[in-house]
Every structure is written in structure tokens, then in C-alpha cells.
Design a protein around this nucleic acid. Structure first.
Length: 101
DNA sequence: ATCATGGATCGTCATTTGCG
DNA sequence: CGCAAATGACGATCCATGAT
């Protein structure tokens, strides 16, 4: 959801720094004549890798959200238990006090 | 209506982790 | 040890909301 439109990839951020270590820039510029294959291969591999990582990131965030929800649930349960126990303790104390008096 | 601000979500890069 | 998957960190974008 969200992120309207530009799923054209590489669209917004990191491209300046990002690609440096991966794209064969020199080759891309110089060897227009010699077989285009290596470049296509490399950039295709890169696309593949980016897509996989994109999906991995989505999944990772989904799991994390779920984990946090679980924790919040657990907190709620424990808080309730705590309340109940405190109430119970107070009752017991009352009973005890009336007995010794 | 316009601007400022903050939160949510995304894609990417760098790093960590776990497995063969 | 090398590789693929998982995750943390960062900056970009979108959207809602309140102030002017």
C-alpha cells in the first residue's frame, strides 16, 4: 500500500551512492560494441537481488509488527493478572486482620 | 488555502546470521 | 568459508492534523 506511482525502481534515494560497488560503470560506458551481454547479465542480476531484498524487507517488517503485537498482548495479560493478584492479596489481608482482632 | 510537523511506510545499502 | 536470507539504519515519500 501507499507509495503511489513511482515503482519504477531506483526512483528516489540511494542510487547515487548505492550502485557504485555493483554496477560495472566503466564497462557500461566504454564497451558499447563488445557484446552487451555482461552488462545485461549484471544489471539483471542486480534487479533480481533488489527485488528479492525488497520482498524480504516487507516480510521482515510484517513479522516484526506481529512480534510487537504479541508483546503488547502479553503486557496486557500480565497487567490484568497483576491487578487480580493485588486485589486478592488485599482481600486476604483483610480477612486475616479481622481474625486476629 | 497554505505551511509545518510527525508518524507510517517504502526501497535500498550495509551488516549480521545461519546453513551447506 | 561462501552464499542467501534476515535485519538494522537511513533517507524519501505520503498522508493526516493543527496552526496561521
Amino acid at each position: 500500500m501507499a507509495v503511489t506511482g513511482d515503482e519504477t525502481e531506483a526512483g528516489s534515494t540511494g542510487e547515487i551512492i548505492g550502485t557504485s560497488s555493483i554496477l560495472p560503470l566503466g564497462e557500461a560506458q566504454t564497451s558499447i560494441h563488445s557484446s552487451q551481454k555482461p552488462f545485461e547479465d549484471v544489471s539483471q542480476k542486480r534487479e533480481q537481488r533488489l527485488m528479492k531484498n525488497r520482498e524480504a524487507a516487507r516480510e521482515c517488517r510484517r513479522k516484526k509488527k506481529e512480534y510487537v503485537k504479541c508483546l503488547e498482548n502479553r503486557v496486557a495479560v500480565l497487567e490484568n493478572q497483576n491487578k487480580t493478584l493485588i486485589e486478592e492479596l488485599r482481600t486476604m489481608k483483610d480477612i486475616y486482620r479481622h481474625k486476629v482482632e
